[in-house]
C-alpha cells in the first residue's frame, strides 16, 4: 500500500481522538515524573492540527506534514512541541513533493524524523524518552519490506511499556533519577498513540 493525503488526514484524526480521550491519563503520567502538562500540551496541539488541516486542501503529503509540523511547533510548547514538530518537519522534507508514500519512502521519512528528534533533544535510546518508541519502531520497520500494521502496533506498545523500567536520563523526569523508575514515560505513551493510530489507518485500508 501507499500512504496518501487522505491516509495522513485519517491518521491525524485518529491520533487526535486517542490523545483527547487520554488527555487526563497522559497528564497524570507527567504528574508522576514530570510537571503534569503533557496531556494538556498534546491535546491542545492536536486539536489545533485538526483545525488547521481540515480547513485546507492538500495536493501532496509533504505540504500536509509541513502544516502538521508547524502547528505542533507553535501550539504544543514544552519539550514535546519542538520534538514532534521537528519529527513531522523532517518527514515533510523527506517526502518533498510526494503525493503518496510507499514503504521505503515511509521508512526513510521515519529515519529522518528520528534523526531530527535526536538532534533536537540530544537524547539516545534507553534514556526514557519518546526516542525509545521511535528508534525501536524504526529498527522493526527496517527488518521488513512492507507495512505490517499488527507488528507495528505491537512493537510500539512494547517499546512504550519498556520505558517503565528505565531510569530517565533526559527531560524533566531525569531530575528524579532512580525515583523515575516504575513509571511510564509520558512522551513514549503519546508516541504510542500516534503510531497505533497509524497502524489502524494501515489496517483499515488493506
Amino acid at each position: 500500500m501507499k500512504l496518501d493525503v487522505a491516509h495522513i488526514l485519517d491518521w491525524m484524526e485518529k491520533a487526535n481522538d486517542k490523545i483527547q480521550q487520554n488527555k487526563t491519563y497522559l497528564t497524570s503520567l507527567d504528574q508522576a515524573i514530570g510537571d503534569g502538562d503533557h496531556g494538556i500540551n498534546m491535546a491542545r496541539g492536536f486539536q489545533e492540527v485538526i483545525g488547521k488541516i481540515s480547513a485546507s486542501d492538500y495536493s501532496n503529503v509533504s505540504d500536509l506534514l509541513k502544516d502538521i509540523s508547524m502547528t505542533l511547533l507553535s501550539k504544543v510548547g514544552g519539550a514535546s512541541g519542538p520534538l514532534y514538530g521537528t519529527a513531522f518537519l523532517k518527514m515533510s522534507m523527506a517526502l518533498k513533493d510526494s503525493d503518496s508514500v510507499d514503504y521505503p519512502q515511509f521508512v526513510h521519512a521515519m529515519e529522518e524524523a528520528l534523526q531530527g528528534i535526536k538532534q533536537r533533544g540530544k537524547a539516545e535510546k534507553g534514556e526514557k524518552t519518546l526516542v525509545d518508541v521511535w528508534e525501536t519502531l524504526l529498527e522493526q520497520l527496517k527488518e521488513q519490506d512492507d507495512f505490517d500494521s499488527v507488528r507495528f502496533e505491537e512493537t510500539a506498545k512494547l517499546a512504550m511499556e519498556s520505558t517503565k523500567e528505565l531510569e530517565a536520563k533526559k527531560g524533566r523526569a531525569a531530575y528524579l533519577r532512580e525515583r523515575s523508575i516504575g513509571h511510564l514515560d509520558p512522551g513514549s505513551v503519546s508516541s504510542y498513540y500516534i503510531f497505533s493510530s497509524l497502524s489502524d489507518v494501515v489496517k483499515e485500508s488493506v
Binding site: D35, G36, D37, I40, N41, R44, L73, S74, K75, V76, G77, G78, A79, G81, P82
Partner: peptide, 12 residues
C-alpha cells in the same frame, strides 16, 4: 509566556 509550566513556542 508559555502556558502554565510549558515553554513558549519558537514562533512566540
Amino acid at each position: 509566556a508559555g502556558e502554565v509550566f510549558t515553554s513558549p513556542t519558537p514562533d512566540q
